[in-house]
Design a protein around this nucleic acid. Structure first.
Lengths: 165, 165
DNA sequence: TATTGTTATACTCTATAACTATA
DNA sequence: TATAGTTATAGAGTATAACAATA
Protein backbone atom coordinates (compact mmCIF):
# COMPACT_ATOMS: atom_id res chain seq x y z
CA UNK A 1 0.00 0.00 0.00
CA UNK A 2 2.66 2.51 -1.04
CA UNK A 3 2.16 6.26 -0.97
CA UNK A 4 3.34 7.94 -4.11
CA UNK A 5 2.46 11.59 -3.97
CA UNK A 6 5.00 14.24 -4.96
CA UNK A 7 7.71 14.89 -2.35
CA UNK A 8 6.43 18.36 -1.45
CA UNK A 9 3.00 17.05 -0.56
CA UNK A 10 4.28 13.92 1.07
CA UNK A 11 4.88 15.22 4.56
CA UNK A 12 1.38 16.58 5.02
CA UNK A 13 0.17 13.12 3.99
CA UNK A 14 2.49 11.25 6.29
CA UNK A 15 1.02 9.59 9.35
CA UNK A 16 4.48 9.46 10.90
CA UNK A 17 5.21 13.11 10.39
CA UNK A 18 1.79 14.20 11.59
CA UNK A 19 2.07 11.98 14.65
CA UNK A 20 5.47 13.40 15.44
CA UNK A 21 4.25 16.97 15.08
CA UNK A 22 0.99 16.46 16.94
CA UNK A 23 2.76 14.47 19.62
CA UNK A 24 5.11 17.32 20.23
CA UNK A 25 2.23 19.75 20.20
CA UNK A 26 0.19 17.69 22.66
CA UNK A 27 3.23 17.27 24.83
CA UNK A 28 4.22 20.91 25.06
CA UNK A 29 0.58 21.97 25.25
CA UNK A 30 0.01 19.75 28.24
CA UNK A 31 3.18 21.08 29.86
CA UNK A 32 1.81 24.58 29.34
CA UNK A 33 -1.63 23.97 30.85
CA UNK A 34 -0.02 22.25 33.82
CA UNK A 35 2.43 25.09 34.43
CA UNK A 36 -0.03 27.31 36.37
CA UNK A 37 -0.32 24.50 38.92
CA UNK A 38 3.44 24.63 39.31
CA UNK A 39 4.07 21.08 38.13
CA UNK A 40 5.31 19.33 35.02
CA UNK A 41 3.94 16.24 33.29
CA UNK A 42 6.50 14.09 35.10
CA UNK A 43 5.26 15.31 38.46
CA UNK A 44 1.76 14.47 37.36
CA UNK A 45 3.00 10.99 36.52
CA UNK A 46 4.50 10.59 39.96
CA UNK A 47 1.32 11.82 41.66
CA UNK A 48 -0.67 9.39 39.57
CA UNK A 49 1.56 6.52 40.56
CA UNK A 50 1.50 7.34 44.26
CA UNK A 51 -2.26 7.80 44.17
CA UNK A 52 -2.71 4.41 42.53
CA UNK A 53 -0.22 2.50 44.66
CA UNK A 54 0.29 4.24 47.95
CA UNK A 55 3.05 2.97 50.21
CA UNK A 56 5.14 1.65 47.35
CA UNK A 57 8.88 2.29 47.20
CA UNK A 58 10.70 4.57 44.80
CA UNK A 59 12.25 1.48 43.33
CA UNK A 60 8.79 0.14 42.51
CA UNK A 61 7.95 3.43 40.90
CA UNK A 62 11.16 3.39 38.88
CA UNK A 63 10.16 0.03 37.48
CA UNK A 64 6.52 0.92 36.92
CA UNK A 65 7.41 4.14 35.13
CA UNK A 66 10.49 2.60 33.52
CA UNK A 67 12.55 5.52 34.67
CA UNK A 68 16.05 5.44 36.21
CA UNK A 69 15.94 5.79 40.02
CA UNK A 70 17.97 8.99 39.92
CA UNK A 71 15.18 10.74 38.03
CA UNK A 72 12.57 9.55 40.49
CA UNK A 73 14.59 11.08 43.30
CA UNK A 74 14.56 14.51 41.69
CA UNK A 75 10.83 14.52 41.01
CA UNK A 76 9.93 13.19 44.44
CA UNK A 77 12.26 15.80 45.92
CA UNK A 78 10.30 18.53 44.17
CA UNK A 79 6.98 17.15 45.31
CA UNK A 80 8.09 16.58 48.87
CA UNK A 81 9.48 20.10 49.10
CA UNK A 82 6.03 21.34 48.12
CA UNK A 83 4.42 19.00 50.66
CA UNK A 84 2.45 17.10 48.04
CA UNK A 85 4.14 13.76 48.69
CA UNK A 86 5.62 12.22 51.81
CA UNK A 87 8.54 9.81 52.16
CA UNK A 88 8.14 7.53 55.16
CA UNK A 89 10.70 5.06 56.42
CA UNK A 90 9.56 1.50 56.07
CA UNK A 91 10.16 -0.08 59.53
CA UNK A 92 10.66 -3.56 58.10
CA UNK A 93 13.25 -2.37 55.57
CA UNK A 94 14.81 0.89 56.56
CA UNK A 95 16.53 1.29 53.19
CA UNK A 96 13.26 1.82 51.39
CA UNK A 97 11.05 4.90 51.33
CA UNK A 98 7.31 4.34 51.23
CA UNK A 99 5.53 7.06 49.29
CA UNK A 100 2.27 8.71 50.34
CA UNK A 101 0.15 11.57 49.04
CA UNK A 102 -0.60 14.38 51.47
CA UNK A 103 -4.08 15.92 51.44
CA UNK A 104 -2.65 18.75 49.37
CA UNK A 105 -1.06 16.22 47.08
CA UNK A 106 -4.38 14.52 46.51
CA UNK A 107 -6.04 17.86 45.81
CA UNK A 108 -3.27 18.74 43.38
CA UNK A 109 -3.66 15.41 41.63
CA UNK A 110 -7.37 15.98 41.22
CA UNK A 111 -6.88 19.48 39.90
CA UNK A 112 -4.25 18.22 37.47
CA UNK A 113 -6.63 15.53 36.31
CA UNK A 114 -9.30 18.14 35.61
CA UNK A 115 -6.80 20.22 33.68
CA UNK A 116 -5.80 17.14 31.71
CA UNK A 117 -9.38 16.36 30.81
CA UNK A 118 -10.05 19.92 29.77
CA UNK A 119 -6.90 19.88 27.66
CA UNK A 120 -8.00 16.65 26.04
CA UNK A 121 -11.40 18.12 25.22
CA UNK A 122 -9.88 21.28 23.76
CA UNK A 123 -7.53 19.19 21.66
CA UNK A 124 -10.49 17.31 20.21
CA UNK A 125 -12.87 20.27 20.06
CA UNK A 126 -13.20 20.07 16.28
CA UNK A 127 -14.09 16.40 16.19
CA UNK A 128 -17.53 14.91 16.63
CA UNK A 129 -17.95 12.33 19.34
CA UNK A 130 -17.92 9.58 16.72
CA UNK A 131 -14.78 10.92 15.07
CA UNK A 132 -13.07 11.18 18.41
CA UNK A 133 -13.83 7.56 19.21
CA UNK A 134 -12.68 6.57 15.76
CA UNK A 135 -9.40 8.44 16.21
CA UNK A 136 -8.90 6.89 19.62
CA UNK A 137 -9.47 3.45 18.17
CA UNK A 138 -7.02 3.99 15.31
CA UNK A 139 -4.36 5.43 17.61
CA UNK A 140 -4.76 2.58 20.06
CA UNK A 141 -4.34 0.04 17.28
CA UNK A 142 -1.23 1.84 16.08
CA UNK A 143 0.13 1.88 19.63
CA UNK A 144 -0.61 -1.82 20.03
CA UNK A 145 1.11 -2.67 16.76
CA UNK A 146 4.14 -0.73 17.95
CA UNK A 147 4.20 -2.78 21.13
CA UNK A 148 3.69 0.06 23.55
CA UNK A 149 3.32 -0.25 27.28
CA UNK A 150 -0.10 1.11 28.08
CA UNK A 151 0.28 3.74 30.77
CA UNK A 152 3.93 4.57 30.27
CA UNK A 153 5.34 7.33 28.21
CA UNK A 154 8.29 6.17 26.07
CA UNK A 155 10.21 9.35 26.82
CA UNK A 156 11.24 7.31 29.80
CA UNK A 157 12.64 4.53 27.70
CA UNK A 158 15.00 6.18 25.25
CA UNK A 159 16.49 9.36 24.01
CA UNK A 160 13.99 11.64 22.36
CA UNK A 161 14.78 12.10 18.66
CA UNK A 162 13.51 15.08 16.76
CA UNK A 163 11.08 13.47 14.35
CA UNK A 164 10.80 13.10 10.60
CA UNK A 165 11.34 16.37 8.80
CA UNK B 1 -18.03 16.13 25.38
CA UNK B 2 -16.18 15.23 28.55
CA UNK B 3 -14.41 11.95 29.11
CA UNK B 4 -15.21 10.40 32.45
CA UNK B 5 -13.60 7.01 32.66
CA UNK B 6 -11.73 5.94 35.79
CA UNK B 7 -8.26 7.51 36.18
CA UNK B 8 -6.37 4.30 35.57
CA UNK B 9 -8.04 3.76 32.23
CA UNK B 10 -7.98 7.37 31.28
CA UNK B 11 -4.53 7.53 29.76
CA UNK B 12 -5.11 4.72 27.33
CA UNK B 13 -8.24 6.62 26.24
CA UNK B 14 -6.54 9.95 25.89
CA UNK B 15 -5.92 11.28 22.41
CA UNK B 16 -3.28 13.63 23.82
CA UNK B 17 -1.37 10.93 25.62
CA UNK B 18 -1.53 8.54 22.68
CA UNK B 19 -0.41 11.27 20.29
CA UNK B 20 2.48 12.12 22.56
CA UNK B 21 3.55 8.50 22.85
CA UNK B 22 3.09 7.66 19.18
CA UNK B 23 4.74 10.90 18.16
CA UNK B 24 7.78 9.99 20.18
CA UNK B 25 7.70 6.50 18.76
CA UNK B 26 7.42 7.72 15.17
CA UNK B 27 10.15 10.22 15.79
CA UNK B 28 12.69 7.86 17.28
CA UNK B 29 11.71 5.14 14.83
CA UNK B 30 12.40 7.40 11.90
CA UNK B 31 15.71 8.42 13.44
CA UNK B 32 16.57 4.72 13.69
CA UNK B 33 15.72 3.79 10.09
CA UNK B 34 17.66 6.80 8.85
CA UNK B 35 20.75 5.97 10.91
CA UNK B 36 22.15 3.36 8.48
CA UNK B 37 22.34 6.13 5.88
CA UNK B 38 24.44 8.13 8.32
CA UNK B 39 22.01 11.02 8.63
CA UNK B 40 19.43 12.30 11.11
CA UNK B 41 15.93 13.62 10.47
CA UNK B 42 17.23 17.18 10.56
CA UNK B 43 19.71 16.41 7.80
CA UNK B 44 16.87 14.94 5.82
CA UNK B 45 14.99 18.20 6.35
CA UNK B 46 17.91 20.20 5.05
CA UNK B 47 18.32 17.96 2.01
CA UNK B 48 14.63 18.31 1.33
CA UNK B 49 14.83 22.08 1.53
CA UNK B 50 17.86 22.33 -0.73
CA UNK B 51 16.31 19.92 -3.21
CA UNK B 52 13.14 22.00 -3.34
CA UNK B 53 14.78 25.43 -3.47
CA UNK B 54 18.27 25.14 -4.82
CA UNK B 55 20.49 28.23 -4.67
CA UNK B 56 18.71 29.67 -1.64
CA UNK B 57 20.67 31.08 1.28
CA UNK B 58 21.02 29.59 4.73
CA UNK B 59 19.04 32.55 6.01
CA UNK B 60 16.15 31.59 3.74
CA UNK B 61 16.36 28.05 5.04
CA UNK B 62 16.40 29.28 8.64
CA UNK B 63 13.13 31.08 7.98
CA UNK B 64 11.52 28.29 5.99
CA UNK B 65 12.40 25.71 8.63
CA UNK B 66 11.85 28.18 11.48
CA UNK B 67 15.17 27.21 12.95
CA UNK B 68 17.83 29.52 14.38
CA UNK B 69 20.69 30.18 11.92
CA UNK B 70 23.26 28.66 14.24
CA UNK B 71 21.57 25.27 13.95
CA UNK B 72 21.48 25.49 10.18
CA UNK B 73 25.22 26.05 10.17
CA UNK B 74 25.89 22.86 12.07
CA UNK B 75 23.69 20.68 9.86
CA UNK B 76 25.00 22.18 6.64
CA UNK B 77 28.52 21.68 8.02
CA UNK B 78 27.80 17.98 8.48
CA UNK B 79 26.34 17.61 5.01
CA UNK B 80 29.09 19.58 3.31
CA UNK B 81 31.75 17.53 5.05
CA UNK B 82 30.13 14.45 3.56
CA UNK B 83 29.93 16.15 0.15
CA UNK B 84 26.16 15.95 -0.02
CA UNK B 85 25.62 19.70 -0.10
CA UNK B 86 27.71 22.54 -1.51
CA UNK B 87 28.01 26.12 -0.26
CA UNK B 88 28.76 28.53 -3.12
CA UNK B 89 29.50 32.20 -2.73
CA UNK B 90 26.81 34.35 -4.24
CA UNK B 91 28.69 36.85 -6.49
CA UNK B 92 26.03 39.53 -6.10
CA UNK B 93 26.03 39.31 -2.29
CA UNK B 94 29.22 37.83 -0.99
CA UNK B 95 27.84 37.53 2.53
CA UNK B 96 25.35 34.86 1.53
CA UNK B 97 25.97 31.21 0.78
CA UNK B 98 23.89 29.64 -1.95
CA UNK B 99 23.15 25.99 -1.24
CA UNK B 100 23.26 23.20 -3.81
CA UNK B 101 22.89 19.43 -3.74
CA UNK B 102 25.75 17.40 -5.14
CA UNK B 103 24.94 14.31 -7.21
CA UNK B 104 25.62 12.25 -4.10
CA UNK B 105 23.38 14.54 -2.11
CA UNK B 106 20.54 14.00 -4.52
CA UNK B 107 21.05 10.25 -4.40
CA UNK B 108 21.08 10.38 -0.60
CA UNK B 109 17.90 12.40 -0.59
CA UNK B 110 16.18 9.87 -2.82
CA UNK B 111 17.33 6.95 -0.70
CA UNK B 112 16.16 8.74 2.43
CA UNK B 113 12.80 9.36 0.81
CA UNK B 114 12.45 5.66 0.03
CA UNK B 115 13.35 4.81 3.61
CA UNK B 116 10.77 7.31 4.84
CA UNK B 117 8.05 5.81 2.67
CA UNK B 118 8.90 2.32 3.79
CA UNK B 119 8.85 3.47 7.41
CA UNK B 120 5.48 5.07 6.87
CA UNK B 121 4.09 1.89 5.38
CA UNK B 122 5.44 -0.23 8.21
CA UNK B 123 3.93 2.13 10.72
CA UNK B 124 0.52 1.72 9.10
CA UNK B 125 0.88 -1.95 8.27
CA UNK B 126 -2.06 -2.96 10.46
CA UNK B 127 -4.49 -0.47 8.95
CA UNK B 128 -6.55 -0.98 5.84
CA UNK B 129 -6.19 1.59 3.09
CA UNK B 130 -9.50 3.16 4.14
CA UNK B 131 -8.50 3.31 7.79
CA UNK B 132 -5.20 4.86 6.89
CA UNK B 133 -6.91 7.58 4.89
CA UNK B 134 -9.34 8.12 7.72
CA UNK B 135 -6.51 8.46 10.23
CA UNK B 136 -4.67 10.84 7.95
CA UNK B 137 -7.79 12.95 7.62
CA UNK B 138 -8.39 13.10 11.36
CA UNK B 139 -4.76 13.92 12.11
CA UNK B 140 -4.71 16.65 9.49
CA UNK B 141 -7.81 18.20 10.96
CA UNK B 142 -6.28 18.10 14.42
CA UNK B 143 -3.11 19.69 13.06
CA UNK B 144 -5.12 22.39 11.33
CA UNK B 145 -7.09 23.15 14.46
CA UNK B 146 -3.81 23.50 16.33
CA UNK B 147 -2.62 26.01 13.77
CA UNK B 148 0.34 24.04 12.53
CA UNK B 149 2.64 25.04 9.73
CA UNK B 150 2.34 22.36 7.10
CA UNK B 151 5.81 21.09 6.27
CA UNK B 152 7.60 22.24 9.41
CA UNK B 153 8.27 20.23 12.48
CA UNK B 154 7.56 22.16 15.68
CA UNK B 155 10.67 20.79 17.36
CA UNK B 156 12.20 23.74 15.61
CA UNK B 157 9.91 26.19 17.32
CA UNK B 158 10.17 25.45 21.02
CA UNK B 159 11.65 23.32 23.72
CA UNK B 160 10.50 19.75 23.62
CA UNK B 161 8.47 18.85 26.72
CA UNK B 162 8.10 15.32 27.85
CA UNK B 163 4.44 14.67 27.28
CA UNK B 164 1.46 13.89 29.46
CA UNK B 165 2.25 11.13 31.89
C1' DT C 1 24.28 50.84 10.41
C1' DA C 2 22.19 46.36 9.00
C1' DT C 3 22.66 41.66 7.50
C1' DT C 4 24.83 36.78 6.57
C1' DG C 5 26.98 33.41 8.44
C1' DT C 6 29.92 31.68 12.29
C1' DT C 7 31.63 30.78 16.84
C1' DA C 8 31.43 30.80 21.88
C1' DT C 9 28.94 30.34 25.87
C1' DA C 10 25.64 28.81 28.92
C1' DC C 11 21.66 26.21 30.05
C1' DT C 12 18.58 22.16 30.37
C1' DC C 13 17.83 17.49 30.45
C1' DT C 14 19.44 13.11 30.94
C1' DA C 15 21.94 8.68 31.96
C1' DT C 16 25.76 6.58 34.29
C1' DA C 17 28.13 5.42 37.89
C1' DA C 18 30.12 6.32 42.41
C1' DC C 19 28.58 6.48 47.07
C1' DT C 20 25.79 5.67 51.84
C1' DA C 21 23.00 3.18 54.62
C1' DT C 22 20.89 -0.62 55.41
C1' DA C 23 20.10 -5.68 54.70
C1' DT D 1 27.67 -9.22 48.99
C1' DA D 2 23.44 -7.08 47.43
C1' DT D 3 19.88 -3.53 47.37
C1' DA D 4 17.33 1.33 48.11
C1' DG D 5 18.15 5.63 47.63
C1' DT D 6 21.19 9.63 46.73
C1' DT D 7 24.66 12.54 44.74
C1' DA D 8 28.17 13.81 41.31
C1' DT D 9 29.63 13.94 36.85
C1' DA D 10 29.59 14.05 32.07
C1' DG D 11 27.32 14.09 27.70
C1' DA D 12 23.87 15.57 24.23
C1' DG D 13 21.16 19.11 22.34
C1' DT D 14 19.82 23.60 22.37
C1' DA D 15 19.23 28.88 22.27
C1' DT D 16 21.44 33.21 22.86
C1' DA D 17 24.36 36.44 21.91
C1' DA D 18 28.93 38.08 20.58
C1' DC D 19 31.62 38.29 16.41
C1' DA D 20 33.69 38.88 11.43
C1' DA D 21 32.82 39.87 6.78
C1' DT D 22 30.17 42.22 3.63
C1' DA D 23 26.50 45.36 2.22
Amino acid sequence: MPIDTPPGELLARSVGFLLSKLGFCASSGFTAVLAPLGIQPQHFGVLRFVDAMEGQSQQAMAEALQMPPSRIVAFVDDLEERKLVERRRNPSDRRAHALYLTAEGRAMFERAMEVAIEFENDLCANLTRAEREQLLDLLRRLAASQGMALGIHPTHLAERGSGPE
